[in-house]
């Protein structure tokens, strides 16, 4: 029997945390299929995830977060699932938020739902510098899509089959899929919604926004937003085969 909903968990060297994340997801959405996409981990992430009962797709080498989640989208597309939930493998996202994420998508009220830590008072607050960067990009996104989005960098998301097909295309920005993704979704005419979710601080040193990366991130994201807006909007048109 095929489950309508697929939960994808991108993971890189998460052997110590992945089992708890899988158990947490299963407790909340027992009917959903769970797939861990192991981004070429050097530890036992894949074996632990399999032992915990998840299906594992393993990259032959490390390809980065964006490519990892896109592998999950390609699998979901081939599998034919209707809804997809994406949750990080480091335990940062509380699986209890999955039903709230899925509700607007499964009801057909939204195509893409993003979980916001800022709409939930119990979530952790990122460092000041990072909050400043987030403020910059959420302002740009709000200006472009004419809709407030409080947490552009959240990887805790749910979306429908049409969005899965859209993300499986080569246009998906695999470097840092954040604010530019929201803008491309808007250009394609997808309905975006935000719901409150609880998030805790990620594992130390594991964030893709740590070290000197923020400088590159800001530059790359500004460039990506600019080229997304400069590209012909016809590129972002939806394809009927994905519907």
């Amino acid at each position: 029997m095929r489950a309508d909903t697929l939960v994808i968990i991108p993971a890189f060297n998460e052997a110590t945390r992945i089992a708890a994340v899988i158990a947490g997801v299963r407790a909340v959405v027992p009917a959903a299929d769970i797939v861990v996409i192991d981004d070429g981990s050097g530890d036992d992430t894949a074996a632990v995830a399999r032992h915990a009962g998840a299906m594992v797709i393993r990259h032959p080498f490390n390809l980065g977060y964006g490519v990892t989640i896109q592998t999950g989208y390609k699998y979901a597309l081939a599998k034919g699932c209707r809804f997809l939930v994406q949750i990080d493998g480091d335990g940062q996202h509380d699986p209890a938020g999955i039903p709230a994420l899925l509700a607007p998508v499964s009801a057909g009220d939204a195509d893409f739902v993003i979980g916001s830590r800022f709409l939930n008072g119990n979530s952790y607050r990122p460092p000041l510098l990072r909050r400043f960067g987030m403020l910059l990009f959420r302002s740009i996104v709000a200006l472009v899509i004419r809709q407030p989005v409080t947490d552009c960098t959240s990887g805790f998301q749910a979306f429908n089959r049409e969005v899965i097909g859209f993300f499986a295309r080569d246009l998906f920005p695999c470097d840092y899929p954040d604010a530019d993704v929201l803008i491309s979704l808007h250009l394609a005419g997808f309905r975006i919604r935000e719901v409150p979710v609880r998030m805790s601080a990620g594992a130390a040193g594991k964030s893709m926004h740590s070290g000197i990366k923020p400088v590159y991130y800001v530059f790359k994201m500004l460039l990506s937003i600019a080229v997304t807006l400069l590209r012909s909007h016809r590129l972002y048109r939806r394809r009927s085969s994905c519907r």
């Binding site: 029997m1 095929r2 594992v56 592998t71 390609k74 599998k79």
Partner: peptide
């Protein structure tokens, strides 16, 4: 690399006796 990962998962599923794409036809 993505295709390789998906095919390996499919192969692993076949060897383990579980269909990695259940219901894909419908």
């Amino acid at each position: 690399a993505q295709e390789n990962a998906l095919l390996r998962a499919e192969l692993h599923g076949k060897v383990a006796g579980t269909d990695p794409y259940p219901g894909a036809e419908d």
